[in-house]
Design a protein around this nucleic acid. Structure first.
Length: 683
RNA sequence: GCCCGGAUGGUGGAAUUGGUAGACACGCAGGACUUAAAAUCCUGUGGCCGUUGAGGCCGUGUGGGUUCAAGUCCCACUCCGGGUACCA
């Protein structure tokens, strides 16, 4: 609604009067008012609103600059900062002050009164269903709503057997006449939406055993705001919005110490589906294919040929003047209307009429002789041929890498559960889709049917739904959890691809194999080597840092790297592995808990403290420097950690490979960034 | 329109302040083990040219720019995703 490319509007002929200045302001109708809200007047501020500004410019309306933002160079048009100008008694005030001053003035002059409006995003706060908190509201004999008495709170949902709407279309609670019609009036029977009641639960979590009130002041003063709230899209638009509304309301009432309920909010990306597609040949495909095949019958066939003359002229799909054959290509159900009369019409003009069904073309794709034979019979024997009724419901599917022209195929969703690595199980496809039971395939050179793919929201209609419960059954909760983390950054939407879960499963197996070999438990009390300690402590460092950044996918990678290295070292030492088990606990809680106990601990792994790395173990003796010529890496070389810039420069220039590049050229500059890189500029 | 985010191999993604692009996985190819399969292990894997154990060129959506050095910073653009208010 608000998308306006061409600005349109109309002056109404009326004026509003500015109550403070008495000045007349023209009232215009503009079309950029949102449909859903556009029932009242909008105050336009052309100097400080993009759309208003364009509107005013377009119609040559007066634009009075009212805010000087020169003190705020970073502010844009909409920001409410700066000093008022050209604004009568508020000129010179900061915007915030000015708003306050205007409200006061209007109140003093009796022109209006201050009011705070709380708004909910969705005006339809109530729902006509059973599940949801009942409104504590009754209506009196005049249908005026009143809140129920405090002593009657909370109003609980009464038990109900039938959750369908009433016969006259009212909410399910309307079925309970006794409950609805109390002595104090008729109860509201709509209920609140789900997120209404759940929008303050985190406050209850701060004081879960309180049986006197929802939460105590002491508890919320102690816990303050929630440190981190992670939720999906539906949370952000619904529940979190109400949470903030409720919370601000509570704050105004002095019930909570913070204005905002959450210190940090992460909107996790949606795990979407990875859809697969098959390509069904369409009529154009059949036409094109038939045209090619007709060449083997006669080169004299012409496409879209008009035969006959004047009023009796016909256009047919293909006709051959030499062999006197006219061909119509259509879907089989559309050929049924061609009766004997139709044949006779063609015969009068000296042609034999050959109806061919697109399904026949598809059906005989791999061996076209039955069709060409039929055409030959038509011109040799003048035989009246009919389409083969057995080909009904035949569809031709073309492997994605065999498509020559996208306009000749129709893209259709296919069940992802019968596609592996984009190769479709053709037998399973036929079994799953009764509508395509008579299917013919154009396979690729490897004899496979290859599908295309796309990232889409999971949906039954897109056949791309993967059930998390099935995944947990197959791979276990730890594996499922870790794979979700591994897929990508938490805030980004990403496609679920079941093929990839093998990687995480493999990791968990490898990790387990550090503790168990074919003979059982194999953890030893040997002393760890510096190498082993370095491996595990660099992992501890990395994971701690990346948890702080909410970069869980890279943490999983780091665990994989660490495990691969320890396996190469054949490390089964408790000193090394114990820390790693604790480090892994938030990622694979079940496995960690089990191994933690196997390591001889009696309490939960979650009750021990998270490991910190020891910088001592991470010390390097040498650093590998990339050595570039004009910014392009040409070599790498290990220099001692404490090598001076001068030494590095001198040695780098001496390297054989570098000499090759500097030969015959002038070294203009050498840049050495300690512990990073070397760049040699030649010219 | 405006605001915010994004675009990196066949795929998901990594690169924390500009400093070895492609970590870690998936997939694929080849090999080991096996009667066979599964599982497991090893090797290779951005593209192109060259090849003997050499090496070279190109490469992070497009076009410019800054810099010794750009996925990263600046300008312009294309495409994709999300948001877009009776505030004033």
């Amino acid at each position: 609604m608000s998308e306006v490319k061409t600005i349109t509007g109309e002056f109404t002929g009326s004026y509003a009067i500015n109550p403070l200045t008495g000045k007349e302001i023209p009232i215009w109708i503009a079309e950029y008012v949102l449909k859903d809200y556009g029932t009242g007047a909008i105050m336009a501020v052309p100097s400080d609103d993009e759309r208003d500004n364009k509107f005013a410019t377009h119609f040559g309306l007066e634009i009075i600059p009212v805010v000087d933002k020169s003190d705020y160079p970073d502010a844009d048009m909409k920001d409410k900062v700066g000093k008022m100008i050209n604004s009568g008694f508020i000129t010179g005030m900061e915007v915030k002050e000015a708003i306050e001053a205007v409200i006061q003035k209007l109140e003093e002059d009796g022109l209006g009164s201050r009011q705070v409006n709380y708004r909910l995003r969705d005006a339809n706060f109530s729902r006509q269903r059973y599940w949801g908190e009942p409104f504590p509201i009754r209506f009196d004999e005049n249908d005026v709503p009143h809140p129920v008495d405090f002593s009657e709170l909370p109003v609980e949902l009464p038990p109900l057997d039938n959750f369908k709407p009433t016969a006259d279309g009212k909410a399910p609670l309307g079925r309970l006449e006794d409950w609805v019609q109390s002595t104090k009036g008729r109860r509201e029977i709509d209920t609140m939406p789900g997120f209404a009641g759940s929008s303050w639960y985190f406050l209850r979590y701060m004081d879960p055993h309180n049986d006197k009130e929802p939460f105590s002041k002491e508890a919320v003063d102690y816990w303050q705001s929630v440190d981190l709230y992670i939720g999906g899209a539906e949370h952000v638009v619904g529940h979190l919005l109400y949470s903030r509304t409720w919370h601000k309301f509570f704050y105004d009432l002095g019930l909570v110490p913070t204005e905002e309920p959450f210190k940090k909010l992460i909107n996790q990306g949606m795990i979407g589906g990875r859809s697969n597609f098959v390509y069904r040949a369409n009529e154009k495909f059949a036409e094109h294919y038939l045209e090619e095949k007709l060449k083997s019958v006669s080169h004299a066939f012409e496409k879209n040929k008009i035969i006959g003359e004047g009023e009796n002229a016909f256009e047919v799909d293909f006709a051959c003047d030499e062999c006197k054959v006219a061909i119509e290509l259509k879907a089989i159900h559309r050929l049924e209307r061609y009766d004997d009369k139709h044949h006779e019409q063609f015969e009068k003009m000296g042609y034999t009429f050959v109806p061919i069904a697109t399904e026949e073309v598809f059906s005989h794709y791999h061996d076209f002789t039955p069709i060409t034979d039929k055409i030959k019979r038509a011109f040799e024997n003048k035989e009246r041929v009919v389409p083969n009724a057995n080909v009904k419901e035949t569809a031709l599917f073309v492997s994605q890498d065999m498509i020559e022209d996208r306009s000749m195929v129709t893209k259709l969703h296919v069940d992802v559960n019968i596609v592996h690595n984009d190769i479709m199980d053709v037998d399973a496809f036929e079994k799953s889709r009764t509508d395509f039971r008579r299917a013919v395939y154009v396979l690729n050179t490897e004899g496979q049917y290859k599908c295309s793919h796309a990232f889409e929201k999971m949906s039954k209609s897109k056949f791309n739904v993967v059930n998390p419960d099935d995944m947990v059954d197959l791979y276990g909760a730890d594996c499922f959890r870790m794979y979700e983390m591994f897929l990508g950054p938490i805030e980004q939407g990403k496609p679920w691809n079941t093929e990839g879960i093998n990687g995480v499963q493999g990791f968990l197996k490898k990790f387990y194999s550090l503790f168990y070999n074919e003979n059982g438990w194999c953890v030893t009390d040997e002393k760890a080597t510096p190498e082993e300690l370095k491996t595990v402590h660099s992992c501890i460092k990395y994971v701690n840092n990346n948890i702080e950044r909410f970069s869980f996918n890279t943490c999983v990678s780091e665990f994989m790297k660490c495990t691969n290295e320890l396996r190469k070292m054949k490390c089964h030492k408790k000193e090394v592995l114990q820390d790693l088990v604790v480090l892994l606990a938030p990622f694979a809680p079940h496995l960690s808990e089990e191994l933690w106990h196997e390591l001889g601990n009696t309490d939960s792994v979650n009750k021990t403290s998270y490991p910190n790395h020891n910088e001592e173990y991470l010390k390097e003796s040498a650093i590998t420097y990339p050595i570039s010529i004009n910014g392009k890496k040409r070599a790498t070389f290990d220099f001692p950690v404490d090598a001076s810039k001068e030494d590095i420069e001198k040695q780098a220039l001496k390297l054989e490979i570098i000499q090759k590049w500097t030969e015959g050229k002038t070294v203009r500059k050498v840049i050495v960034v300690p512990k990073r890189m070397v760049n040699i500029v030649v010219g």
